[in-house]
Amino acid sequence: MKKALLGRKMGMTQVFDANGDRVGVTVIDVDSNVVVQKKSSDGPEGYSAVKLGFDRAKKLEKEGEESEWRLSLPEVGVFENAGIDVPRKHLKEFRCEEADLEAYEVGEELGADLFRVGEWVDVTGTSKGRGFTGVMKRHNFSGAPGSHGTHEYFRHGGAIGQSADPARVFPGIKMPGQSGDKRTTIQNLRVAKIIEDENAIAVTGSVPGSKGGLVMLRTAVKKQQT
């Protein structure tokens, strides 16, 4: 069955595995996940997916405003239609098989106990933004030699193509530009620990983004679940 949870990256620490080896883990807070909508291939959407909401919205302190939450009325309406009392700040959906839809119910709260220890997951998040970077940092180029007559050409990328034929630069050539701050998925991380009373999951290895960043855990695509 395809499973997914939204969460907040809390930071990294380490635990000991069965062999007594140290493993670095990332702790993800998955509290307040809720099923907002189910999409079916028979329905108007034409594909099967489950829409999740995450992170409870705060109430507006001002009186007399149109919306009582720190969300716009259309955003609140999504949750009202689903019969959820407290709207959530984030909405994300994940694709699943048609048969998996039965396992979820609109309005149902999901928590860390959705996953088991040892399961494989893919984690998606937004990587840390590095701004406009050169080719060495962005694409791991080697740069130019530090000596032997190199003149003002240390971190350059070198040639970007041929001459009069083709007389253009091919699309997709690696060049400097914005690096990071991009949707990134790390595949095949293992669920190392589940803290049920805090609704948190620890996965082995690192996860894209900074602490406090929104991430999505999904059943691993490329691993056979045992």
């Binding site: 809390m10 930071g11 883990v25 702790v27 807070d29 620990k193 803290i195 805090e198 948190a200 406090g212």
Partner: peptide
């Protein structure tokens, strides 16, 4: 935030 990390470490020490 740090509390949650400490919670993960619980039982490991």
């Amino acid at each position: 935030m740090d509390n949650l990390l400490r919670k993960v470490e619980e039982g490991e020490t």
